[in-house]
Computed example of a mutant assay.
Amino acid sequence: MKKIIFLCLSLLLISCKDKNKEIAVVASTDTKQNQNSKIDHQLREVKKAVIAPKIDGDMNDPIWKETLWYAFDQKWLGEDYTFKDFFGRYKMAWTTEALYILVEIKDDKLYDQHKDPLTLWWDDDCVEIFIDEDNSGGNHQFNNNAFAYHVALDGNVVDLDESQNPVLYNSHVKTKRVTKDDVSVWEFEVTVYDDSYKEGKVNDPVILQKDKKLGFAIAYNDNDGSKERENFIGSVFIPGEEKNLGWIDADVFGTILLVE
Protein backbone atom coordinates (compact mmCIF):
# COMPACT_ATOMS: atom_id res chain seq x y z
CA MET A 1 0.00 0.00 0.00
CA LYS A 2 2.85 2.38 0.92
CA LYS A 3 4.49 1.63 -2.43
CA ILE A 4 1.27 2.53 -4.25
CA ILE A 5 0.92 5.81 -2.34
CA PHE A 6 4.59 6.65 -3.02
CA LEU A 7 4.13 5.87 -6.73
CA CYS A 8 1.06 8.12 -6.94
CA LEU A 9 2.87 10.97 -5.20
CA SER A 10 5.83 10.60 -7.56
CA LEU A 11 3.60 10.71 -10.62
CA LEU A 12 1.81 13.76 -9.24
CA LEU A 13 5.12 15.53 -8.61
CA ILE A 14 6.38 14.76 -12.13
CA SER A 15 3.10 16.00 -13.58
CA CYS A 16 3.39 19.26 -11.63
CA LYS A 17 6.99 19.74 -12.80
CA ASP A 18 5.98 19.15 -16.43
CA LYS A 19 3.09 21.59 -16.04
CA ASN A 20 5.42 24.20 -14.55
CA LYS A 21 7.82 23.72 -17.47
CA GLU A 22 4.94 24.18 -19.90
CA ILE A 23 3.85 27.37 -18.13
CA ALA A 24 7.44 28.64 -18.16
CA VAL A 25 7.75 27.99 -21.90
CA VAL A 26 4.45 29.77 -22.60
CA ALA A 27 5.49 32.69 -20.40
CA SER A 28 8.84 32.90 -22.18
CA THR A 29 7.13 32.85 -25.58
CA ASP A 30 4.65 35.52 -24.51
CA THR A 31 7.49 37.71 -23.24
CA LYS A 32 9.33 37.35 -26.55
CA GLN A 33 6.19 38.22 -28.48
CA ASN A 34 5.62 41.28 -26.29
CA GLN A 35 9.20 42.40 -26.86
CA ASN A 36 8.75 42.06 -30.62
CA SER A 37 5.66 44.25 -30.74
CA LYS A 38 6.45 46.49 -33.71
CA ILE A 39 3.62 46.84 -36.21
CA ASP A 40 4.88 46.65 -39.80
CA HIS A 41 4.26 49.77 -41.80
CA GLN A 42 5.57 50.96 -45.15
CA LEU A 43 6.34 47.30 -45.93
CA ARG A 44 8.55 47.18 -49.02
CA GLU A 45 10.19 44.28 -50.83
CA VAL A 46 13.93 44.47 -51.49
CA LYS A 47 15.30 42.40 -54.36
CA LYS A 48 18.42 40.24 -54.11
CA ALA A 49 21.35 41.23 -56.35
CA VAL A 50 22.91 38.42 -58.37
CA ILE A 51 25.98 40.64 -58.73
CA ALA A 52 26.71 42.91 -55.77
CA PRO A 53 26.84 46.59 -56.75
CA LYS A 54 30.28 48.14 -56.96
CA ILE A 55 30.51 50.94 -54.40
CA ASP A 56 31.70 53.66 -56.77
CA GLY A 57 28.90 56.24 -56.84
CA ASP A 58 27.74 55.02 -60.26
CA MET A 59 24.18 53.95 -61.11
CA ASN A 60 25.16 51.47 -63.83
CA ASP A 61 25.11 48.25 -61.79
CA PRO A 62 22.60 45.70 -63.16
CA ILE A 63 20.51 45.62 -59.97
CA TRP A 64 19.88 49.37 -60.07
CA LYS A 65 18.26 48.96 -63.48
CA GLU A 66 15.80 46.43 -62.01
CA THR A 67 14.69 48.22 -58.85
CA LEU A 68 12.30 51.04 -57.96
CA TRP A 69 13.06 54.51 -56.68
CA TYR A 70 11.56 55.58 -53.36
CA ALA A 71 11.37 59.15 -52.12
CA PHE A 72 12.74 61.20 -49.28
CA ASP A 73 9.42 63.00 -48.86
CA GLN A 74 8.69 63.32 -45.14
CA LYS A 75 9.70 66.54 -43.38
CA TRP A 76 10.82 65.50 -39.90
CA LEU A 77 12.35 68.86 -38.89
CA GLY A 78 12.60 72.38 -40.26
CA GLU A 79 10.64 74.75 -42.44
CA ASP A 80 9.15 73.97 -45.84
CA TYR A 81 11.76 73.61 -48.57
CA THR A 82 11.69 73.96 -52.35
CA PHE A 83 12.77 71.57 -55.10
CA LYS A 84 15.72 73.88 -55.79
CA ASP A 85 16.90 73.44 -52.21
CA PHE A 86 16.40 69.68 -51.91
CA PHE A 87 15.20 66.56 -53.70
CA GLY A 88 16.06 63.01 -52.71
CA ARG A 89 15.33 59.42 -53.70
CA TYR A 90 16.81 55.96 -53.07
CA LYS A 91 16.89 52.31 -54.17
CA MET A 92 17.80 49.15 -52.25
CA ALA A 93 19.17 45.63 -52.87
CA TRP A 94 20.76 42.86 -50.83
CA THR A 95 23.14 39.92 -50.87
CA THR A 96 23.83 37.46 -48.07
CA GLU A 97 26.70 39.73 -46.95
CA ALA A 98 25.11 43.19 -46.91
CA LEU A 99 22.35 45.65 -47.72
CA TYR A 100 23.04 47.99 -50.66
CA ILE A 101 21.53 51.45 -50.98
CA LEU A 102 21.70 53.86 -53.90
CA VAL A 103 20.83 57.48 -53.05
CA GLU A 104 20.44 60.48 -55.34
CA ILE A 105 20.34 63.86 -53.61
CA LYS A 106 19.76 67.26 -55.24
CA ASP A 107 21.10 69.82 -52.77
CA ASP A 108 22.04 73.33 -53.84
CA LYS A 109 24.73 73.64 -51.15
CA LEU A 110 26.78 70.93 -49.44
CA TYR A 111 27.92 72.09 -46.00
CA ASP A 112 30.39 70.49 -43.61
CA GLN A 113 31.19 72.91 -40.80
CA HIS A 114 32.57 70.41 -38.26
CA LYS A 115 35.81 68.75 -39.39
CA ASP A 116 35.85 66.58 -36.26
CA PRO A 117 33.46 63.75 -37.25
CA LEU A 118 32.36 63.28 -33.61
CA THR A 119 31.31 66.92 -33.07
CA LEU A 120 27.69 67.91 -33.78
CA TRP A 121 27.68 65.50 -36.72
CA TRP A 122 23.92 65.81 -37.23
CA ASP A 123 24.20 69.54 -38.02
CA ASP A 124 26.25 68.92 -41.18
CA ASP A 125 24.85 67.60 -44.45
CA CYS A 126 24.69 63.81 -44.11
CA VAL A 127 22.66 60.74 -45.00
CA GLU A 128 21.27 58.85 -42.00
CA ILE A 129 20.55 55.12 -42.33
CA PHE A 130 18.41 53.38 -39.71
CA ILE A 131 18.69 49.58 -39.37
CA ASP A 132 16.81 47.29 -36.96
CA GLU A 133 18.12 43.79 -37.74
CA ASP A 134 15.22 41.79 -36.27
CA ASN A 135 12.48 44.36 -36.96
CA SER A 136 11.59 44.25 -33.26
CA GLY A 137 11.20 48.00 -32.78
CA GLY A 138 11.67 49.61 -29.39
CA ASN A 139 14.18 51.97 -27.83
CA HIS A 140 17.72 52.02 -29.25
CA GLN A 141 18.98 55.42 -28.14
CA PHE A 142 21.91 54.12 -26.10
CA ASN A 143 21.94 50.44 -27.01
CA ASN A 144 22.38 48.25 -30.08
CA ASN A 145 18.77 47.16 -30.47
CA ALA A 146 19.05 49.17 -33.71
CA PHE A 147 21.55 51.50 -35.36
CA ALA A 148 21.29 55.07 -36.68
CA TYR A 149 24.27 55.53 -38.96
CA HIS A 150 25.05 59.19 -39.79
CA VAL A 151 27.14 59.12 -42.97
CA ALA A 152 29.01 62.40 -43.46
CA LEU A 153 30.15 64.03 -46.70
CA ASP A 154 33.68 62.74 -46.04
CA GLY A 155 32.42 59.16 -45.54
CA ASN A 156 32.75 58.98 -41.75
CA VAL A 157 29.93 57.02 -40.07
CA VAL A 158 28.77 57.98 -36.56
CA ASP A 159 26.29 56.61 -34.02
CA LEU A 160 26.05 56.61 -30.22
CA ASP A 161 27.36 53.63 -28.28
CA GLU A 162 26.06 52.03 -25.09
CA SER A 163 28.08 54.52 -23.01
CA GLN A 164 26.23 57.39 -24.73
CA ASN A 165 29.36 58.44 -26.61
CA PRO A 166 29.67 59.06 -30.36
CA VAL A 167 31.65 56.31 -32.09
CA LEU A 168 32.90 55.82 -35.65
CA TYR A 169 31.27 52.81 -37.35
CA ASN A 170 33.17 53.11 -40.62
CA SER A 171 33.59 49.33 -40.76
CA HIS A 172 29.78 48.92 -40.82
CA VAL A 173 29.08 51.17 -43.80
CA LYS A 174 31.21 51.41 -46.91
CA THR A 175 30.28 54.42 -49.03
CA LYS A 176 31.19 56.45 -52.10
CA ARG A 177 29.74 59.82 -53.13
CA VAL A 178 30.08 61.42 -56.59
CA THR A 179 28.83 65.01 -56.95
CA LYS A 180 28.22 66.85 -60.20
CA ASP A 181 26.82 70.37 -59.99
CA ASP A 182 24.08 70.16 -57.34
CA VAL A 183 23.40 66.41 -57.63
CA SER A 184 25.18 63.80 -55.50
CA VAL A 185 25.00 60.06 -56.07
CA TRP A 186 25.82 58.00 -52.97
CA GLU A 187 26.27 54.23 -52.83
CA PHE A 188 26.29 52.34 -49.54
CA GLU A 189 27.20 48.81 -48.54
CA VAL A 190 25.79 48.20 -45.05
CA THR A 191 26.96 45.20 -43.04
CA VAL A 192 24.14 44.20 -40.68
CA TYR A 193 24.67 43.40 -37.00
CA ASP A 194 22.12 42.21 -34.44
CA ASP A 195 21.46 43.48 -30.92
CA SER A 196 24.26 41.34 -29.43
CA TYR A 197 26.81 43.74 -30.95
CA LYS A 198 29.41 45.00 -28.43
CA GLU A 199 31.88 47.81 -29.13
CA GLY A 200 35.48 46.66 -28.86
CA LYS A 201 34.57 42.96 -29.11
CA VAL A 202 34.64 40.46 -31.96
CA ASN A 203 31.19 40.61 -33.59
CA ASP A 204 29.88 38.40 -36.37
CA PRO A 205 27.68 40.11 -38.96
CA VAL A 206 24.26 38.70 -39.77
CA ILE A 207 23.97 36.51 -42.86
CA LEU A 208 20.96 37.85 -44.76
CA GLN A 209 18.41 35.42 -46.16
CA LYS A 210 15.27 35.42 -48.25
CA ASP A 211 12.04 36.30 -46.36
CA LYS A 212 13.92 38.12 -43.59
CA LYS A 213 12.34 41.33 -42.31
CA LEU A 214 14.37 44.30 -41.10
CA GLY A 215 13.34 47.65 -39.71
CA PHE A 216 14.56 50.39 -42.06
CA ALA A 217 14.38 54.11 -42.66
CA ILE A 218 16.64 56.64 -44.34
CA ALA A 219 16.88 60.41 -44.05
CA TYR A 220 18.92 63.45 -45.06
CA ASN A 221 20.15 66.25 -42.82
CA ASP A 222 20.31 69.43 -44.90
CA ASN A 223 22.21 72.54 -43.84
CA ASP A 224 22.93 75.37 -46.25
CA GLY A 225 25.22 77.34 -43.92
CA SER A 226 23.47 77.71 -40.58
CA LYS A 227 24.79 76.88 -37.11
CA GLU A 228 22.26 74.03 -36.89
CA ARG A 229 20.70 71.80 -39.56
CA GLU A 230 17.84 73.47 -41.38
CA ASN A 231 15.90 70.38 -42.45
CA PHE A 232 15.69 66.71 -41.61
CA ILE A 233 13.89 64.86 -44.40
CA GLY A 234 13.01 61.18 -44.06
CA SER A 235 11.53 58.26 -45.95
CA VAL A 236 8.83 57.19 -43.46
CA PHE A 237 5.72 58.98 -42.22
CA ILE A 238 5.86 59.49 -38.44
CA PRO A 239 2.51 60.38 -36.83
CA GLY A 240 2.16 63.10 -34.21
CA GLU A 241 3.90 66.44 -33.77
CA GLU A 242 7.31 65.07 -32.74
CA LYS A 243 8.99 63.59 -35.83
CA ASN A 244 12.62 63.41 -34.72
CA LEU A 245 12.27 59.96 -33.20
CA GLY A 246 14.32 57.70 -35.46
CA TRP A 247 17.48 57.99 -33.36
CA ILE A 248 15.55 56.89 -30.28
CA ASP A 249 12.66 54.59 -31.22
CA ALA A 250 12.87 51.84 -33.85
CA ASP A 251 9.06 51.52 -33.82
CA VAL A 252 8.92 54.40 -36.30
CA PHE A 253 11.08 52.61 -38.88
CA GLY A 254 9.47 51.12 -41.93
CA THR A 255 9.86 47.41 -42.70
CA ILE A 256 11.75 45.84 -45.58
CA LEU A 257 11.26 42.23 -46.73
CA LEU A 258 14.14 40.50 -48.51
CA VAL A 259 12.98 38.70 -51.67
CA GLU A 260 14.67 37.02 -54.63
Rank of each mutant, 00 (worst) to 15 (best):
3 K>R: 12
7 L>T: 13
11 L>E: 05
17 K>A: 14
19 K>E: 10
20 N>P: 00
23 I>T: 07
24 A>N: 12
24 A>C: 06
25 V>T: 12
29 T>Q: 09
35 Q>M: 15
42 Q>Y: 15
45 E>D: 13
52 A>M: 10
56 D>Q: 07
77 L>N: 13
78 G>A: 01
80 D>L: 02
83 F>W: 08
94 W>G: 05
95 T>L: 03
97 E>N: 09
103 V>R: 13
107 D>F: 14
117 P>N: 04
119 T>E: 15
122 W>G: 13
124 D>C: 08
124 D>Q: 04
125 D>T: 08
130 F>T: 10
132 D>G: 09
136 S>E: 11
143 N>M: 07
146 A>D: 12
148 A>L: 11
155 G>E: 03
162 E>N: 15
169 Y>M: 15
174 K>F: 06
175 T>Y: 10
182 D>Q: 14
183 V>G: 06
184 S>Y: 05
185 V>T: 04
198 K>Y: 04
200 G>R: 00
202 V>R: 00
205 P>F: 06
209 Q>K: 06
210 K>H: 00
212 K>T: 10
213 K>W: 06
214 L>E: 07
217 A>D: 12
227 K>L: 10
232 F>N: 02
236 V>D: 00
242 E>V: 09
244 N>P: 01
250 A>Q: 02
250 A>C: 04
252 V>H: 07
258 L>K: 07
